[in-house]
Amino acid sequence: MKKELGIFILLIVLCIIVSIINPNFLLSINLQNLARQIGAFGIFSIGLGLVIITGGIELSVGSMMALLGVLLSMTLTEYGYGAAVAVLASIGLAMGLGLGHGLLITRLNMQPFIVTLCGLLFYRGLARFVTDDETKGFGAADYESLRFIANGNLFGVPMPFVLLLVIAAITWLVLHRSVYGRYLFATGRNSEAARYAGIDTKRIITLTYVISGALTAISGIIFAFYTNSVSPANHGNAYELYGIAAAVLGGCSLRGGEGSVVGILIGTALLQVLRNLVNLLGIPSSLDFAVMGAVILIGVMADQIFTERRNRRQVALMRELSAREAK
């Protein structure tokens, strides 16, 4: 919990600084926009965070979104299916791709980095091929329900943010209170010992990639309708890196077995506030990535220092105990 508190304070401090320098930060239009971005990025970041907790990685998120996006547009506009069918197909396909990743990783013992890197290349190429590299849109037709999910507000709160909160609440319960969550942490920490404890680690890992696929699809639908057009070559480029950054910033360890839903949420928010800050403070947008890189580095560094201190305290406590016993 301390971990999340640290970066939460960083987030608040950043918000205060930005709003002092440029009060426009607090305009409801800006806050709404920010929340919309946090929602859209947060949903797939949670999935990516779960994968990272297994000790894996998912690099194909951005490409998968491009592929799902163009297919969504084609099912709706070119083949004329209804919104419900298109959405279910999109989520189903993404879960299928996640299942594929999971099976390759657990059954063939392939490295997650390699499997999902191939996914990153493959899905991007596929998206460009099926569209002949043409940007796909949704035209002027009214897919009202879908547009509402991406651009609508519920009592003034952007829908993607509402969705994020719902998904986060469910994931929190699953990750931090359920048997599945504990198995996930055990598998990520030490899959050998988890297996010796009777956990079906292969199933747990595969399932996690499937969940990540589903969440990627939901984010993908939001992004597609938010931008209203999907350029197969650029849509979702580098989004996986935003997700990884948010997860790591939120306390997930790439070694696996560590992380929290709240942390990932705060991490996502921090990243989006940083992007917003670059805009509002008139920092050249070319520095965009540099600012993010620096803040992530500092955040992770501080966290590492705190963790080591906590460990040392526990070791000291054990020593005291053994000393007392010796007497």
Binding site: F185, A186, R189, N190, E192, A193, A194, Y196, G257
Partner: peptide, 9 residues
């Protein structure tokens, strides 16, 4: 330490 326990748990 490798198979019996998850030492970080």
């Amino acid at each position: 330490r490798l198979s019996g326990l998850i030492v970080d748990f």
